[in-house]
Design a protein around this nucleic acid. Structure first.
Lengths: 336, 336
DNA sequence: TTAGAAAACGAAAGCGTTTTCGTCTCTATT
DNA sequence: AATAGAGACGAAAACGCTTTCGTTTTCTAA
């Protein structure tokens, strides 16, 4: 059907070897020959077959991507889609395409790893905050170059935001405003960022010398608005109500704000709120949400660079990169 | 490196033909043979090479996806990422993987079409609202099966929301509330949805028998918050101010709301606002935004089905599917 | 003019599959 | 006992490319 290297050879009168050579910029081919072949390639609309090529070279210029859909968010989560976007932009420069796979081949359910090997990807990037996934673990421990975003692991390259710095910044800011009764709406504890931010909260709070009663730490579930709302309601009925709340995500912060409003209180006058993520709409809600911003562009781009280096054998050992975050001060916090 | 069909053949003492046959469920192989081979396949951790397989079968079980990044939104746009998500889920069932390509191979910039052919994809899905893209046109007009989302074309399968129905519903709703002075903040007119909603507005408004002065139609740019705000500001200085505004997107509606607030007016008491898209945060802002919801899940899933049918030669001619929308009534509109 | 070096080119093997068609061995039928 | 047919299996070609290594041609210098 499509025109092959043989057609070009026949049309030009040279051998397929020579055609292949000009296609791959080999030096040992005459100038006139090269020009003639190139011209014919163009005229006949020839393009090589990536399959045939990969079959012999063992290099597919394809990167596998996994993202966790288990929470039902997946691509819709702007945190991930933004990272993927910037990731894609840098790998493109090197000629790599992205393959989103299903974890089944044909009829049988196959593991991600098997599927990636089947597809012959050169490397894998995984976007996931979720701990303890067997399939994931197999990919990480395999010899396939990989980088994993927003999760820690000793067995491959990792990159994630500095959750400790983030919580600490938030806490310091709140304390600078005079708050001492600070509560934490935690993200799900099966999630890397949920755990880290919780730990960060505990640590920073100790360092900064403020006492946090256990009742000030409530679980907000899977980073949902509803979860944040319910968590806040628990906080609201406390005899000694917190004056500020640090939520592990903007969605939960939003839920918390709703709960506060429904209780007839105001943000930030009665209770200050600080979120995490700086999602698109955090600047649009009322009051505008003060939040910790993750550097998604840098995370995506650096993840790409790490993976590319790993593929090219330039990484001696596994890289662990922790990306700084920044505090976006808006209107949801006020002085006590 | 990896174990091939030859290794299985050698280990079991059968020929590669027979091995291949059991792998592909051919009937002419003995029961014991089949079992033995299957066992060895499992033990040796064999998986076929998709490249070798595709090379002979011409079937890659790979679908190309294009989405427009020109507006700088791309994957981040929740409208697209939600559709991709549901699209992916149905094609996965048939064993297809998704390939996100760059529009270059190696060093040279190549067209999407060339790249898709190079990669040997079985079909292409394009997510784009943008008219007049040359590269896109080439893909659409090619013999590659394709489906295009949120854009109209006579040369391939298309699927999009019923923008006429959407605008009409919005307008009727506004009129039922007593509004007659209704303005439109239009989306960019190089965009399919921008154009369609504008046309829909004109048409419905005529049918419903209300007069709209030209000054009531303002351009909101590329569906940005900023653009919506500026557009609203133009509306605000009119001698006869509209009492309701239909914006072509939630983002622009949000911008409009900001402009109104800054002008010291209130939504919906002074001006009613209705958006389009039902983005995640439209339920979270104050007041909660009344908006037209697109059925993204259905769009994605049906796009997948259409493409799959097209690949399997089941579509006699090109399909055009228009998906109904629904009106989400919230708090940003009130009776006049 | 000629030997040797450099430049151009091609033959062939190999990559890992699928698939057609042929061969061989049974079993069942007459 | 002979034979037709079914059941199992394998040889070999084909898919489209890359790459090594050898061969031929052309050029340079003595």
């Amino acid at each position: 059907m499509a025109v092959t290297i043989y057609d070009i050879a026949k049309a030009t009168g040279f051998s397929i070897t020579t055609v292949s050579k000009v296609l791959n910029n080999y030096p040992d081919v005459g100038k006139k020959t090269r020009e003639k072949i190139l011209k014919t390639v163009d005229e006949m609309g020839y393009y090589p077959s990536s399959y045939a090529r990969t079959l012999t070279t063992k290099k597919s210029y394809t990167l596998g991507v996994i993202y966790m859909e288990s929470l039902g968010i997946g691509l819709k989560h702007s945190f991930f889609s933004a990272i993927i976007q910037s990731f894609k932009q840098v790998v493109e420069l090197e000629g790599y395409d992205l393959l989103f796979i299903a974890n089944k081949i044909g009829d049988e359910k196959k593991s991600y790893l098997d599927h990636f090997k089947y597809r012959g990807v050169d490397g894998v990037v995984v976007f996931s905050s979720e701990n303890d996934d067997d399939e994931l673990e197999k990919v990480i421990e395999s010899d396939l170059p990989s980088v994993i975003v927003d999760l820690d692991s000793a067995n491959t390259n990792v990159i994630y935001s500095d959750n400790y710095q983030g919580t600490e910044m938030a806490l310091k800011y709140l304390m600078a405003l005079g708050h001492k009764k600070i509560a934490h709406i935690a993200g799900h504890q099966n999630t890397f960022s949920g755990i880290e931010r919780m730990k960060g909260f505990l640590k920073a709070t100790k360092q900064l010398g403020i006492q946090i009663p256990p009742s000030y730490i409530v679980n907000g579930g899977f980073f949902s608005v509803e979860g944040g709302k319910e968590a806040m309601q628990q906080l609201l009925v406390l005899s000694e109500r917190p004056t500020a709340v640090f939520a592990s995500s903007d969605t939960m912060a939003l839920g918390a704000m709703e709960a506060i409003k429904e209780a007839g209180l105001r943000v930030p006058e009665d209770i200050s709120i600080i979120g995490y993520d700086n999602v698109e709409w955090s600047d649009y809600i009322t009051p505008k949400l003060t939040t910790v911003k993750q550097n998604v562009d840098k995370i995506g781009a650096d993840a790409a660079k790490i993976l590319l280096n790993s593929i090219n054998g330039k990484n001696a050992s596994y890289i662990k990169e922790v990306v700084p975050v920044s505090l976006i001060k808006r209107d949801s916090c006020s002085e006590l």
